[in-house]
């Protein structure tokens, strides 16, 4: 289906192919990167909003 789409672009098939490649490469890199993250780091990152070191904010009770 995509191939037909690119064909209809009138002499710019390679444009479509290049776009497609950029697209796939992007996601492969993204997944590789995410998988490679260290578990401990990720845990620390995700705790960031919770310890914001404010003196006041802990004294304020939940509403």
């Amino acid at each position: 289906m995509l191939r037909d789409v690119f064909k209809s672009m009138g002499g710019y098939e390679s444009y479509g192919m290049i776009s497609m490649i950029i697209f796939v490469v992007f996601f492969v890199l993204l997944l590789l990167y995410t998988i490679s993250l260290k578990k401990k780091d990720v845990e620390n990152f995700s705790r960031m909003p919770l310890d914001d070191f404010s003196k006041e904010s802990d004294e304020v009770q939940e509403i």
């Binding site: 995410t34 990720v42 995700s46 909003p49 919770l50 939940e62």
Partner: peptide, 8 residues
Amino acid sequence: NRPIYSYK
């Protein structure tokens, strides 16, 4: 009061 489900 808990971290996001999955940071990844």
